[in-house]
């Protein structure tokens, strides 16, 4: 049921070519922020218009698209972006990570390891990792050019001085192939190790700030840290209450107004897959209707 009033995947071919040129440049220089002329999209900026434009430029009619928001396929944001591409591109969709050829994500990397040939598209609100330390765009550009990254460690130093430990939990900066420092978008730092050496192509799109950057397959991305305060990918110290997984990133849910709570996989597809395979968590059998 493609809406014929639009070009395939909404954007005109000219615009898609422009975005693809930016993507190729971004892949050629891993971690480097490439400016692009972001277009108005029929949705508000907070909804990931940068990611949507990158996805639109990547999609072919044969693709199978998955869209997740904080790991879930069924939030309003994920559902509406999925519907948008169903309508404008007529592509097949899936919630199953291994079946998807293109995955657009906000704030998570799927738990299931990605494979060669898959594309992971991130929605990015603020692409510049130095922004909170140095507000001047001219100066941050210079700092990237000259690899002048001492300030990134000042930020981590301040974290430890104030909190006793590196408190940065999301958008934890990485150094790409020993060159550019990159903001991985607000994924939890638990996901940072998956950025590095990933078989999939990882593309990052920031709509409002008009930047695209990328990690080609098998690119090294090292989380910044100190020798005596090494990077630690942390998660809640629990197993998933639905599927029992001990190694997946968890969301905490309040289950009643008496302080009842449960921990469940934030990656809903991963969790459902485990349950279908017979894994059962602490509350998995008792309250299946609480599946988020």
């Amino acid at each position: 049921m493609t809406d014929q009033a639009y070009n395939f995947a909404y954007l005109d071919e000219q615009t898609k070519r422009m975005i693809r040129r930016a993507l190729l440049k971004a892949i050629a220089v891993p971690g480097y922020q490439v400016p692009f002329a972001s277009r108005e999209m029929p949705m508000p900026y907070g909804w990931g218009t940068g990611g949507v434009q990158v996805t639109a430029a990547c999609l072919t009619p044969e693709d199978r698209l998955k869209v997740i928001d904080q790991g879930a396929d069924d939030t309003t944001n994920a559902v509406s972006i999925r519907k948008f591409f169903q309508r404008t591109a007529g592509v097949a969709t899936t919630e199953h990570t291994p079946d998807a050829t293109v995955i657009q994500t906000r704030h998570r990397i799927p738990e299931t390891a990605l494979k060669a040939g898959q594309i992971l598209v991130y929605q990015v609100p603020i692409p510049e990792p130095l922004r909170f330390l140095e507000p001047r765009e001219s100066e941050t550009r210079k700092m990237h050019e000259l690899e002048d990254y001492g300030l990134m460690h000042v930020k981590l130093y301040e974290d430890i001085a104030r909190h006793g430990t590196i408190a940065t939990a999301y958008a934890y900066p990485v150094k790409v192939e020993g060159r550019y420092v990159m903001d991985p978008s607000p994924i939890p730092k638990f996901d940072n190790p998956k950025l590095s050496g990933n078989a999939a192509i990882q593309l990052f799109g920031a709509g409002r700030e008009q930047r695209i950057y990328a990690l080609p397959p098998w690119t090294e991305a090292v989380s910044l840290d100190f020798d005596d305060h090494p990077f630690q990918p942390s998660k809640a110290p629990h197993d998933c209450d639905l599927c029992g997984a001990a190694d997946s990133y968890l969301d905490e849910l309040i289950t009643d107004d008496l302080g009842g709570r449960m921990f469940v996989c934030s990656d809903t597809d991963f969790c459902a897959g485990r349950r279908a395979a017979g894994h059962i968590g602490r509350l998995g059998a008792a309250e299946p209707e609480v599946v988020p």
């Binding site: 300030l151 100190f226 005596d228």
Partner: peptide, 27 residues
């Protein structure tokens, strides 16, 4: 000075800029 950064961070910045990566030693 960086007015939003602690005294220790201000003094440590030049050390970190040239590659110091040990928090305890910087401090």
């Amino acid at each position: 000075l960086r007015m939003g950064v602690t005294a220790g961070g201000n003094v440590g910045e030049r050390l970190m800029a040239v590659g110091a990566r040990h928090y305890g030693q910087i401090r």
